[in-house]
Simulated scan of single mutants.
Amino acid sequence: MGNIGETTLEIDLSALEHNYHYLKSKLSSDTKFLGVVKAFAYGSDMVIIAQKLERLGADYLAVAYTKEGVLLREAGIQIPILVLHPQPVNFDHLILHKLEPSMYSPKILKEFLEMAQKLGLGNFPIHIKFNTGLNRLGFWEQDVDHIVEILNGRNEVKVVSIFSHLAASEDPNEKDFSLTQINTFKKISQELNEKLGYAPFRHMLNTSGILNYPEAQFEMARCGIGLYGYGNESTIDQELKPVATLKTVISQLHQIEPNESVGYNRAFTSDRYRTTATLPLGHADGIGRQYGNQKTHVLVHGKKAPIIGNVCMDMIMVDVTGIACKEGDEVVVFGTEQSAEGFANTAGTISYEILTAISSRVKRVVLNP
């Protein structure tokens, strides 16, 4: 172990490259690959990840909101960027930076067409999102005629893709539901193609979809969590490499006597002589209070040190009794030695949440650029 000196999120681009090639290997050679880099690339660094994916040959990137796409364009990213959840107030910036919006409701489509007409756009690329069962965003199957009626005879925009999203692609118990979604999407796309008079490319699969329903990869697949090292299934996790490793240091050691308490609200009381270590990260850095009170552990020299007491805003205390360590020693929170999925599961949540929660005040360090 080295001495990193402060709380640091290491971003290993060689791991990203490994995951990219693994996921690509599950697709046909002519299937486009979209890398999802929303939420600061799942809590890492959106620009660095996007630049690497562009160099690796990704066909598309996706973000949630317009301002994320603008940041990528300002950093020099050239490949197409799909904005999954655009808001009308940002349409002017979206258009200026040549981002491609998802049209997910009659209101959004109408307002974007009004803006496109006002600006005199021609064949501006848009993507039509259909809801096939997730019931989050998207047009309904019965909206096809309405969409075609609005778009026919209009040259301000061009539908470059239609897409949907599986609700439970990682759950084998929901296979029938997933297959119903896929068949519904096939029906919608066929009807839309016939009525539009041309065939936009299609995409429906997320990471688990790529692994479990490759027959539904259509012309493009979207991958988020898999790129960052997690596959929603233990055997797949073994094939992937975590991109982000959160490390911190021991700020101070304390010798605690029996019946002494630790932290706010005296949430932990020692039953014997113990050694505790205070670490410089807390719920303001993304380690929520749900991880305290011995639910979760960090690794000190590879050994488990439970988080004791309540997580503070800027600090956590861990029990290092019996672990040979000193102030300034490195501590691993999650990453290559302990997965973010395992860390998150102790508090009843998922890798996505802990990864995307890591605060911007945590230093980012890029490995293997």
Rank of each mutant, 00 (worst) to 15 (best):
I128A: 07
I79F: 01
E74L: 01
T66Y: 04
V70H: 09
M115W: 10
K110N: 07
K107D: 02
R73N: 08
Y65D: 06
K110A: 06
L109K: 12
E111V: 10
Y60I: 01
D92Q: 15
A62I: 06
A62Q: 07
V83I: 08
N152C: 12
E114H: 06
L99A: 07
T66N: 00
W140P: 10
V63A: 12
E100Q: 12
R154W: 06
E68P: 09
H97T: 02
H93P: 03
V148T: 06
I95S: 07
I108P: 01
Q87E: 11
L94Y: 05
V83Y: 03
E68N: 08
L72T: 04
S102D: 15
L137I: 13
G76I: 01
L134I: 03
E74W: 00
L94W: 03
I147R: 11
K118W: 03
F91N: 04
G69R: 00
D143Q: 13
R154Q: 15
G122D: 14
R73M: 02
V148S: 11
E68W: 08
V83F: 08
P106T: 10
V144D: 13
L121P: 14
N123V: 08
I147K: 12
H85M: 04
G122E: 15
E100S: 13
Q117C: 11
G69S: 00
K110E: 05
A62R: 00
K98D: 14
L84I: 02
Q142R: 11
V144Y: 04
I108V: 09
L82E: 14
N152F: 14
E111I: 11
I79W: 03
L121E: 09
A75W: 05
V144I: 08
K118F: 03
H97L: 02
I126Q: 15
L72N: 00
P80G: 03
E114V: 14
S105F: 11
I126R: 05
G69N: 00
D59P: 00
R154N: 11
L109T: 02
Y60S: 07
K67F: 03
G76S: 00
E114G: 08
S105M: 06
K129S: 07
H127I: 05
H127G: 08
A116S: 11
F130E: 05
I77Y: 01
P86D: 01
L61T: 02
P86W: 08
L109M: 07
E100W: 02
P106D: 10
I81D: 04
V63E: 13
P101S: 04
V70C: 02
N90A: 08
Y104V: 03
L113K: 05
M115L: 03
K129R: 15
H97Q: 00
V70E: 02
L84M: 11
T66F: 02
S105V: 06
G133L: 14
N135L: 09
N135M: 10
P88Q: 10
L137R: 15
L119I: 11
F124Q: 10
A64V: 04
A75G: 07
V148R: 07
N152M: 11
H85V: 09
E111T: 04
E74R: 02
H127Y: 10
I77H: 02
P88W: 13
D145I: 06
